[in-house]
Write a protein that binds this DNA or RNA. Structure first.
Lengths: 202, 202
DNA sequence: AGGTAACCATACCGGTCTGTATACTCGCAG
DNA sequence: CTGCGAGTATACAGACCGGTATGGTTACCT
């Protein structure tokens, strides 16, 4: 039973290595602009005209590359998940492998990540805007939540503790942003320390 | 130091008693229709024409009563907070006053509430759609999160434990909906029981 | 030389958005 | 009887929406 991430990283955590689709030059600019705008203002609040203009290109190119706005939204979330996993796994790999350190590091990474990204969880936000239906981004959203849950399970080797930590993680994101409580991450770390003493030092 | 809700309910929890503004007949139908539509489909996805038509009235009446869509959105959230607090406080008042029972009951109430309301936290959803700026609903959203935090603080008499529980509460809502994990509430109750043994029986 | 992928520029389509204007009916209180 | 608040009905304004159409310009590859 794995107790931390190493060469035996479970299959659920592997998708981070999946390469993202290759993009052309203008396509890259479009996805970059769309990502910033979608995250800052919301998916529905941003029109394709604005995206094309911000990227210094045209709507024609946008539709030639991505086919639809919905597909661009799904790709935005997919790439964001990719980057967050890279960021997180790099920090975890550079630290001591004991579960306590690794778990606390997740909340450190979250706080650091949110220090510059001040609009909360892009996946929760997108879910709120897309809601019901069969939008192509919905599977990406569910997959991201399942990945974080699997990460906590893998770090602790205990699904019960993993579930607890995942609830704390998602709660931290909400309280940080919609709750406007900048102490949320610190409270989460404190919660991990006092409430999960079973997480030993290796 | 209060350890449960009773006659000494702290001032932060009193706003639930504030009466909502009185509405005319058509105004009531409009707010009812808007609430259902906003929650189910999202605030931006619902136009004022649809609201008026669903309520069996006209846009003219909507603007005569509420002044703007933004104001209607803020009122929708205000009334939803009001109803959730009434629902929750009624269940808490009917149960044993010991902190452990009361805290677990919050998660019971959340699960029951979400059994029929399947689109997650209306406040988080609205925050995701409104985001930055000075929308009149933003203070309502922050106030709701602060109220829940104050409730947990009051129930436990310990801000550290209150913060921990609040993170679990918000995380449960997210995992239930965007995470599509129906076990979230059960996992949260289990987390409360195993990780907060300090919550005695009175 | 010819083909093709990528891109730019611009105009257009039908539809929807919030919000306003006009004009009418009804009930009720002074 | 008059005035007013509430409501109905409809039309409109001006902007924006996602998506498409047309046409022209590079650069590269065979």
């Amino acid at each position: 039973m794995p107790t931390s991430l190493d060469a035996t990283t479970p299959a659920e955590l592997r998708p981070v290595l999946q390469p993202l689709p290759t993009l052309t030059e203008a396509g890259t600019r479009l996805l970059e602009a769309a990502s910033d705008l979608f995250y800052d203002r919301g998916v529905r609040a941003v029109g394709v005209d604005l995206i094309a203009e911000t990227a210094g290109t045209t709507k024609k190119t946008l539709y030639d590359r991505f086919g639809s706005k919905d597909a661009l939204v799904a790709l935005y979330l997919l790439r964001r998940a990719h980057r967050w996993r890279e960021y997180l796994l790099a920090r975890l790999a550079a630290a001591e492998p004991d579960p306590r350190t690794q778990v606390l590091l997740v909340f450190d990474a979250l706080e650091a990540w949110m220090g510059t990204q001040r609009r909360g969880c892009a996946f929760v936000n997108a879910y709120a805007e897309l809601g019901r239906g069969d939008h192509p981004a919905l599977p990406v959203i569910r997959a991201e939540k399942a990945w974080m849950r699997a990460l906590f399970d893998a770090l602790t080797g205990d699904p019960e503790v993993g579930g607890h930590l995942h609830l704390l993680y998602e709660g931290t994101l909400v309280v940080l942003t919609a709750g406007a409580n900048p102490l949320a991450a610190a409270e989460a770390r404190r919660a991990v320390e006092v409430a999960l003493p079973r997480l030993g030092a290796g």
